[in-house]
Each structure stands twice: as structure tokens, then as C-alpha cells.
Design a binder for these strands. Sequence first.
DNA 1: ACCGATACCGAATCTTTTTTCGGTTATTAC
DNA 2: GTAATAACCGAAAAAAGATTCGGTATCGGT
Lengths: 120, 120
Amino acid sequence: MYNRKTDEELDCGVRVAFKIFGGKWKLCIIDAINKGIVRPTDIHRSIASATLRVIEIQLAELLFYGVVEKSAEDIYPKKSEYKLTPFGETILPLLTQIDKWGTVHSDFVKQRQDELQDAE
Amino acid sequence: MYNRKTDEELDCGVRVAFKIFGGKWKLCIIDAINKGIVRPTDIHRSIASATLRVIEIQLAELLFYGVVEKSAEDIYPKKSEYKLTPFGETILPLLTQIDKWGTVHSDFVKQRQDELQDAE
DNA sequence: ACCGATACCGAATCTTTTTTCGGTTATTAC
DNA sequence: GTAATAACCGAAAAAAGATTCGGTATCGGT
């Protein structure tokens, strides 16, 4: 896991929450697992624009913080399956709300995004 | 505003939402404004661990995406006041939930954090 | 006239995060 | 026995994001 050079201030709830699920793909991964897509390659296939490596890295972080757990540790053939822990499941209501908000305002945000592009 | 080199995929609600309020200090700034702390220096003082510059930058982004609006445009003495737009206010329920989640799980996260430190 | 406060901005320089790429191990399928 | 697939990992590089620092402009107080 990446070794920070500076101390991280977890002084408010928001910072704590973002520490756990603020990564670029973390909520997408949690969503996939919740939908029954439990193996790394399958998660990768379901999130086309993420690389497999970043999914591995973020899965390792989610594992470290106890959001997900892994079965099939060191046996072969390797068929790892990840699932949400009870702790991980407490994130689901937030995920639902955040995703819904984003979906509702998607067009508006994309429009503003395009205006930025045109200005250059 | 920062100029991306790669195309940003806003393919799911989560990505859209994080585009708007996923910045390191964005939700903290929105929270401050909501609490009536409306001027840049005051916001800075209320968020001790952020620099004034980053608050300015993120405020400009929130302004661009219509989350906040600014009064006292170009008059002197400069006493800018920021407030949430109706669009910005739609973020408040999420902010409340995220902050609450983080507060509830704060000790657990900090504990895991410390374990990481000790291992080095 | 000078100092301190406020509100900015630009640019260089970090730090952090993501990507790219190559490698390992072991199984199944042909 | 060779190829394909799966599940990783390490390290370098690139990209994104945050910080530092110095600058401008204007006001109000002394």
C-alpha cells in the first residue's frame, strides 16, 4: 500500500468517509460486488474504463479496511471471491444516494463539462 | 481551472457525483457555507488544515458548476460572500449522511490507520 | 505614507493516485 | 507441451491534485 509522506487529518466525518470509499473506483467496485460480480476479472470487465491493476490495488485497500472479505485464499486454481462485510454493507445506503444524485444531475454536469472544452 | 490530458468518463452516477463534490475539501467547504461561514478567509479559518489557495481553487470550481454563487463581484472593499444555489442545496442530504457515516466509523478507521503505521 | 486585511491569480514544486508493463504461479483445455 | 486464463505483485512512468510562494489590487486605520 502507498506510503504517505504527510500526516492525514481525519478530523471530520467527511474525511474519514472519503478515506474509505473516496478512491476513484471504490464505490463502483462495492457496487459491482453488491450486484454479485465477485471475482476480480469479472469486476474489471464490468468497469470497462478502469484497469485491472487499479482494481486489484483498491480491492486490497477495501480488504485492509474491512469493507470486503476474500475467500479462496491460497488454493489453486485461484478463484478469489470478494464479498461485502457487515461494515461494507453500511456503505450501501450512501452508495445508492450518491449514485442516484449523480444520475439525476448527469446531463447538467456533462453540459458544463462540454462548455469547458469548447472554451479551449 | 486544471486542464485534463485524458477524457473523463462520467459513465455512472458515482463518477458524476465525485466530479462535483469529490475534491479533498469540497464537502467541507459546502458544509461551512451551509453553516453561514460565507467568506473565503472565514472558510479558511474554519478548515484549519486546508490552505487558502486550495479553498480558492475549489470555490472557483464549485462556482463553475453552479454549486455556489458569489455576491459582491467587483466592488471594493472586496468582501465576497458565497452561498449555495438550489442545485448546491441538493447536495446537503448526501453531505449529512456521509459525515454521519464517517463520524460513526471514525474510531475504527483511525485504529486501522494506526496499525498501518506500526507495521513500518 | 505605511501596515494589515481581503480577495484573488500564476507558476513552480511537491505529493498522491493511476496507468503501463512485465513478471510469477498454477490450473484447465487442446 | 503449449496456449489461455486467473490472480496477483513490483516498479517505473504519467497524470492529477494540492501546496507553497510570490504577486496584484484596494480599502481602512494610524
